[in-house]
């Protein structure tokens, strides 16, 4: 699996309140949440983002609330991958569970600039900044997590297990 797109770049500690503020949490639908994605940190994001685009941020991306609406809004906005120096732990597991690809790579997070075109090879974990020609190696996922992702998320994996019983 691969991803390729233009980069939206953010700093440290992007919290789930700015990704999707509470005033929009009265609707659980991903396509509705996507219209307001990143609105309190980047009001233009939802208008500008194209299918396949990539978010790059520094440390502790997705900190704060456990709202799964945050990764859901990013996924439904068309973002193909989030690359960060580190992720807050609930955002991390929520992303895996719903099938939003995320990669931890401090070097890529530090060097990739807004507007760069970046491609990602999820099998190898190699991130390529096609604008600068530089490549980065992200941490791979352990097999346990790869199984969840291969099953198309935790719900699909659970369904298969429950049906198998």
């Amino acid at each position: 699996m691969n991803a390729k797109g233009k980069v939206f770049k953010y700093g440290d500690n992007v919290d789930t309140d700015v990704i999707i503020p509470a005033r929009y949490l009265n609707d659980p639908r991903g396509e509705v949440l996507a219209q307001y994605c990143m609105i309190d940190i980047d009001p233009e994001f939802a208008k500008k983002v194209q299918k396949g685009d990539i978010i790059v941020a520094n440390k502790n991306f997705g900190c704060g609330s456990s709202r799964e609406h945050a990764p859901l809004s990013i996924k439904c906005a068309g973002v193909s991958c989030v690359i960060a120096a580190s992720f807050a732990r609930i955002f991390y597991r929520n992303s895996i569970n719903i099938g939003l690809p995320i990669l931890e790579c401090p070097e890529a997070a530090a060097e990739i600039q807004a507007g760069d075109t970046v491609s990602v090879d999820f099998d190898s974990g190699v991130i390529t900044d096609e604008t600068t020609g530089k490549t980065y190696q992200a941490q791979g996922f352990p097999p346990f997590i790869q199984e969840i992702m291969a099953a198309d998320g935790l719900v699909a994996q659970t369904r298969a297990k429950l049906e198998g019983k």
């Binding site: 799964e68 609930i90 597991r93 929520n94 569970n97 935790l154 429950l162």
Partner: peptide, 18 residues
């Protein structure tokens, strides 16, 4: 510990969490 809605859904279905 805090988790998301998908973990809650699977937790309610199976009584387990990773």
């Amino acid at each position: 510990t805090g988790i998301g809605s998908t973990d809650m859904a699977v937790g309610m279905a199976t009584g387990q969490c990773w």
